[in-house]
Design a protein around this nucleic acid. Sequence first.
DNA 1: ATGCGGACCTGTTAGC
DNA 2: TGCTAACAGGTCCGCA
Length: 271
Amino acid sequence: MPELPEVETTRCGIAPWIEGRQVARLIVRQRKLRQPVPRRIDRMLPGCAIAGVRRRAKYLLLDTDKGTAIIHLGMSGSLRVVKHAEPPGYHDHFDMVLNDGNALRFRDPRRFGLLLWTTSDADRHPLIRHLGPEPLGGDFDGDYLYERARGRRLAVKNFIMDGRIVVGVGNIYASEALHGAGIRPSRPAGRISLARMERLAGQIRDVLQAAIAEGGTTLRDFAHSDGSPGYFRQQLAVYDREGHDCLRCATPIRRVVLGQRSTYFCPACQR
DNA sequence: ATGCGGACCTGTTAGC
DNA sequence: TGCTAACAGGTCCGCA
């Protein structure tokens, strides 16, 4: 489900419901996520006031007066604000019960998500420290991409999906941005001109921004914190459109596998 | 250092 | 209809 736009949509959806509230208790029903939910968060989080919800890459950071809860949605995770009394489903792995009768409920069938706790600067946490710049921030542009690509023979799609290069570009939007930039996903990153890298950086920003504006992409079960879908799917130009006509040149879209992930492109207008 | 494959899980869908 | 295989939005690790 979640790429950066979906995580940002989630952040905006839950923030008004949890900011300024106190966590009454934490109910963990399933500790086995991508990493085990640490025991100490059960002791540390209750009593904490949630000061704000930030996003770094695809991590959601819940800042409190005593530390920061780090949440990742993995492939299939979602967060919703529910009435505490609402009975949890089988894949509802934890609830942060708030002092107003609501609960922030985490659901994740595949359990690739995370709940961690840090008492120091979250940006220095081992999972976050090594991450590259935010694609919507000021440190990301074509010059940057071009410089980082020097000497790299990796396919550009895998290159832009590497979180150490730039964060938040997942499998859907990688294909979309490359189509927008007219670059073939399999092209070695180091063999792309500066001018084309500038186009690519611009497309990455534009695609992510547009997806955020539409509330993310709903493919299967992605839903907002209020249960409504995202509408960006209607604007996808290549993703999951194998055999359909390219919206730009009418050539049939092709699907290939790169880095073990489905990749969609137009063989005519992407070089 | 780089690039590749495998690993972690479960649910849904396509195909026979 | 029923079984099996392929596939799914992410990321980390270890090996060559």
